[in-house]
């Protein structure tokens, strides 16, 4: 295997992206469709000034706060729903309702109640991801082998040992698999909410570029978000999925 082989698909994608920009430039003209070199130059300027990392960091931070809130509410409710049928029966319609609600509803509602700011993306991410966290936590608990629970009671297995060797390894794969899905969508929901309801963050920067018709800036922010998405996938989401599969096979 040549050293280039692992990065070859990325290079091909980059070339295709450059070709698409060039084609758009020829079709729309340079004012509306800047070429790849101009976009890369703008991206470099944003990175050099620190603005790129500050704004992307803010978007990711808000997404993480939203996911944290969703985990606190949806995770606890999901665990209880998995354990107690009554909680599941009574909370499932509400969670299904949340799941069918498009994020734009949350953005509009929070903007009316709190104005623009960090709360809009945080609350939007929390509301959009809570149903996933809930259902994965509930499925994790419901997937625990009932016979092993009975066996543990019969042999009076100490609670901590039961938690570490049976319950957590049984639930965590579901939870981590769900978390990886949640994380991969959370930062995108955060950026959309910033676009509509915040004055800072990468989503808001895209809005400013759009409103001023700064097409080089718009393309640079778009490219930065693609890179962010790929980086999160490689550094966080894929390892989480691997960990979930590992726990499923080997335990904690």
């Amino acid at each position: 295997m040549t050293p280039l082989k692992p990065i070859l698909p990325y290079l091909v994608s980059l070339l295709l992206w450059g070709a698409a920009l060039e084609a758009a430039r020829l079709f729309f003209g340079p004012a509306l469709a800047p070429g790849p070199l101009e976009v890369l130059k703008t991206l470099g300027t944003l990175a050099y000034s620190g603005e790129l990392f500050r704004e992307l960091g803010l978007t990711v931070k808000r997404a993480l706060y939203g996911v944290l809130l969703a985990n606190l509410a949806g995770g606890v409710l999901g665990l209880l729903a998995g354990r107690f049928r009554l909680v599941l029966d009574h909370s499932a319609p509400l969670v299904a309702g949340l799941q069918s609600c498009p994020p734009v509803v949350w953005i509009a509602l929070v903007m009316v109640l709190s104005g623009t700011g960090s709360l809009v993306p945080v609350a939007t991410v929390a509301a959009a991801t809570l149903p996933f966290v809930f259902s994965n936590a509930a499925q994790g608990v419901m997937g625990l082998n009932r016979r092993i629970i009975l066996m543990s009671r019969l042999y009076k297995v100490p609670p901590l040992r039961r938690l570490l060797r049976f319950t957590l390894p049984g639930i965590l794969p579901f939870y981590l698999a769900g978390l990886s899905t949640v994380l991969s969508t959370a930062w995108k929901a955060s950026a959309v909410a910033e676009f509509m309801g915040s004055s800072d963050g990468a989503g808001a920067r895209i809005y400013w570029c759009y409103s001023r018709l700064d097409m080089e800036g718009l393309q640079a922010w778009a490219l930065s978000m693609i890179i962010l998405g790929l980086s999160l996938e490689a550094l966080l989401i894929t390892p989480l999925r691997k960990k979930a599969a590992e726990i499923s096979a080997r335990g904690l």
């Binding site: 082998n145 016979r147 092993i148 009975l150 066996m151 543990s152 042999y155 297995v157 040992r161 060797r165 049976f166 390894p169 726990i247 499923s248 096979a249 080997r250 335990g251």
Partner: peptide, 19 residues
């Protein structure tokens, strides 16, 4: 148990140690 009720991610020794 008729269906064994073994913990799939624990080794044989781990399943015995568990109880």
């Amino acid at each position: 148990f008729q269906d064994d009720a073994l913990i799939p991610w624990l080794t044989a020794a781990g399943n015995l140690s568990y109880v």
